[in-house]
C-alpha cells in the first residue's frame, strides 16, 4: 500500500511539474501560432532541437520573445523574419531558396530525373533487342526441326 501511495505521489508531482510552462493567450488562434512557431524555430545553442523542446537559456528567451510578438498580433512571417534578422537563416528549419541552398532543392529533382531517364533508356535498348521478325520465326522453326531430328537419331 505504501509503495502504491509513493508511486502515485511521484506520478502526480511529475504532472504538476509539466504544467509550469503553460502560457496564457488571448485567443485560440494565437496559441496555435505560438505552437507552430516554437516548433519551426531552431534553438541556436542545441542545434538539433527546436525552441519548444530545448531547455537552453536562449531557447527560453526566444520562446518568451515569440510569445510577446504573437500577443502583439504579429503574423508568422513577421516573427520568423524578426528571428532571422538576429540569428540568421539558421534559426528557421525551412531554409529559403538562395544560391547557396539551391542545390538542396535542385539535386533531388535532378537525381529523380536522371534515374527515370536511365530506366527509360535501358528499357528502350532492351526492347530493340527483342524485336521479332518473320525471318526470325522461320529460323526458329528450322532450328527446332533440326533439333528434333538430332534427338530422334
Amino acid at each position: 500500500m505504501k509503495t502504491v501511495l509513493l508511486l502515485l505521489s511521484l506520478i502526480i508531482s511529475v504532472s504538476a511539474f509539466a504544467q509550469q510552462d503553460r502560457y496564457q493567450f488571448d485567443n485560440k488562434e494565437q496559441a496555435v501560432r505560438f505552437e507552430e512557431l516554437t516548433k519551426e524555430l531552431r534553438c541556436p545553442k542545441c542545434q538539433n532541437q527546436n525552441i519548444a523542446d530545448s531547455d537552453a537559456v536562449v531557447a527560453k528567451d526566444l520562446r518568451d520573445k515569440v510569445l510577446v510578438l504573437v500577443k502583439e498580433n504579429k503574423s508568422k512571417d513577421e516573427v520568423i523574419d524578426y528571428m532571422i534578422d538576429r540569428y540568421g537563416y539558421f534559426v528557421h528549419y525551412d531554409p529559403p531558396v538562395t544560391p547557396a541552398t539551391l542545390v538542396l532543392w535542385v539535386l533531388p529533382v535532378l537525381i529523380v530525373i536522371l534515374g527515370f531517364g536511365f530506366i527509360v533508356i535501358r528499357q528502350r535498348k532492351a526492347s530493340v533487342k527483342q524485336r521479332w521478325s518473320e525471318n526470325d520465326e522461320l529460323l526458329l522453326n528450322k532450328l527446332i526441326a533440326q533439333n528434333k531430328h538430332q534427338e530422334r537419331s
Binding site: 541556436p44 545553442k45 537552453a56 537559456v57 536562449v58 528567451d61 526566444l62 520573445k65 538576429r86 540569428y87 540568421g88
Partner: peptide, 12 residues
Amino acid sequence: HRTLSLDLGVSG
C-alpha cells in the same frame, strides 16, 4: 534580461 543579447543574436 538578455535583451541586447537577443537583439545581437547571441546564443551563449
